[in-house]
């Protein structure tokens, strides 16, 4: 029963707590300063010793006031953290709900792509018709193209180029001699044909 405290001693501890506190090293670490073994902090641990000396004349808190301020700030800090966590949770919930809301809105909205669908179906039909073409028809078409008189086409192209007239300088600078040959032949033939008629 030696460990049991008398009512008077309990009363002493409640109303004069500073009387029983131990000396705590004064550092800037708030957690090192805090002792929860029944002791109350006596110093403003957020202010360095030098700063405290400078401010000694301006503010003069007692040990109790400082401790209560610290405890209050700690509890307030906890509330702020809690509020922050709650706001983050709310934000996450809103983000999570957003796709669901978006999907609901999309399903509620009537969207039609009729012109595009029609155009695509027409293009598909054309493509299908093209695919249905007989291979022999394609071959015949290719044959017709190949049967074209290449020489005549080249001649036409040459005369189109020289529609405005052929200069001697142009001819003298042509690297491919077959072009002047073709031009001379065509013009000589035209000259001879005009005399014969």
């Amino acid at each position: 029963m030696a460990d049991l405290l008398s009512i008077s001693s309990i009363r002493e501890r409640i109303f004069n707590p500073t009387k029983h506190e131990k000396t705590v090293a004064r550092t800037s670490n708030p957690f090192a300063q805090t002792s929860f073994k029944g002791n109350v902090l006596t110093a403003d641990v957020f202010v360095s010793e030098n700063a405290k000396e400078k401010q000694a004349n301006a503010i003069n808190f007692t040990g109790k006031l400082k401790a209560s301020a610290l405890v209050g700030s700690i509890s307030d800090f906890g509330n702020k953290i809690k509020a922050g966590i709650e706001s983050a949770v709310n934000f996450a919930k809103r983000i999570a709900e957003y796709p669901i809301n978006f999907w609901n809105k999309l399903s509620e909205t009537e969207v039609t792509f009729e012109p595009a669908i029609k155009a695509m179906s027409k293009a598909g039909e054309k493509f299908g018709e093209a695919l249905k073409m007989d291979a022999s028809v394609v071959g015949a078409k290719a044959g017709e193209v190949l049967k074209m008189d290449v020489g005549a086409k080249v001649g036409e192209a040459l005369h189109t180029i020289f529609d405005n007239g052929i200069s001697a300088k142009q001819i003298s600078k042509m690297e491919d001699i077959s072009i002047p040959r073709q031009l001379l032949m065509d013009n000589v033939q035209a000259w001879e044909a005009s005399l014969a008629s």
Partner: peptide, 20 residues
Amino acid sequence: MVDKKIVKNVKNIIDGLAMH
């Protein structure tokens, strides 16, 4: 009657070949 353009073309082609 031969077209003057043809005569001119033939002359220019031959002159060009002379310089080639």
